[in-house]
Design a protein around this nucleic acid. Structure first.
Lengths: 199, 199
DNA sequence: GTCTATAGTACGATAGAC
DNA sequence: GTCTATCGTACTATAGAC
């Protein structure tokens, strides 16, 4: 990966972010040095500071972009339908989206404590907006009697944790296909909220 | 917290471990320095090495002790009964035990990547033994038709993630009591595996 | 058993050459 | 736009005084 002197700003920026995402996910933000990131990209450490104000900003940007894109993508599946249909769609979307971006998901859930207070507040707000979309589905289902929920808010936390947990064990090419996992988890989610999956 | 020269080996050791547990959970293993731990205890950094070979051993011992105690405690609730009763007991135990030890739980799930390969293998084996106890309950329930499970192994992963997620949002003195949370989660777990909670 | 002091290394970030 | 070089600081771990 020897590199020559020259102008590569259009590709170096994204490459820095990709390397940081991978390294932060693998070893943790605090355990990764700017020198490691630079080595992965093939530039010197000082060069990184042309593309980020400091290490903290690099982490924040990765998390903010991930959550912003997540919210944008979620908007597309948020259209009407019964609470049951919406919950199925949410579960399938959540699993598919998260399995496609294991590193970004891992960082967004694990590196919150390495954010500055201001950055933490921003990220938490974005995450809250995402979780609220599931809460809204559960509340609607509870209100119309389609779901049997003693506590919609708690059920939301439980479902998010259950669905996100897929990223901890699923391996591409394993015993279960992605579609099978999506189907089985959606079914468990429906059962957990007191609604049998329509089949 | 000023301290004088003298002999305190019997209390310094545990205090170091308590401080390390709290700091690792709060800021992450890689982000905490030996100096910080020493300052929290009220000794100098060099003193820590009378009680631990190095920083890595400190982390490993905390995780190993937590999981060993978890397995010991689990053995007590593993006695017979129907799969339904056993799953309820497991869910209630898991939540109660984890809510009592938020720092140890957090570290055991978050700092795996900061373990050396050998230490990682040991810890993973212990965790696997714990998860197998839930898998055994689910498999038994599936075999005798008490649970409707397309895939007992996947359901085990889903339930563990759901139950452990409680530590992420539950606050003592909040809207829901610990017993209420235990009851509601056990109910969701039973529903998720295709068995209605007996009531 | 704890301290002070320090060796040896690595870090984040910056300055200035090319 | 990237490099080399470096400043100032912090780290893990150890040695030896008390």
């Amino acid at each position: 990966m020897a590199r020559k002197i020259g102008s590569h700003s259009e590709i170096t920026g994204p490459r820095i972010r990709e390397a940081a995402l991978r390294l932060f996910a693998r070893h943790g933000f605090a355990a990764v040095s700017m020198r490691q990131i630079a080595a992965e990209v093939g530039v010197q450490a000082g060069t990184l500071y042309l593309y980020t104000a400091d290490k903290q900003a690099l982490l924040f940007d990765l998390m903010q972009d991930h959550l912003t894109e997540l919210l944008t993508a979620t908007s597309q599946i948020e259209t009407g339908g019964t609470p049951t249909a919406r919950l199925i769609a949410f579960a399938r979307f959540h699993i598919g989206y998260h399995l496609d971006r294991p590193d970004a998901v891992f960082i967004a859930y694990m590196e919150l404590r390495n954010l500055s207070p201001e950055n933490f507040a921003t990220i938490e707000h974005l995450r809250r907006r995402y979780e609220d979309r599931l809460q809204a589905i559960l509340q609607a289902g509870s209100d119309c009697g389609e779901f049997a929920l003693p506590d919609a808010r708690m059920a939301g936390f439980a479902l998010i944790a259950m669905l996100t947990g897929v990223t901890g064990w699923y391996r591409e090419g394993g015993r279960l296909s992605r579609v099978e996992v999506q189907t089985l988890y959606a079914e468990m989610a429906l059962r957990a909220v007191g609604r049998r999956a329509p089949d």
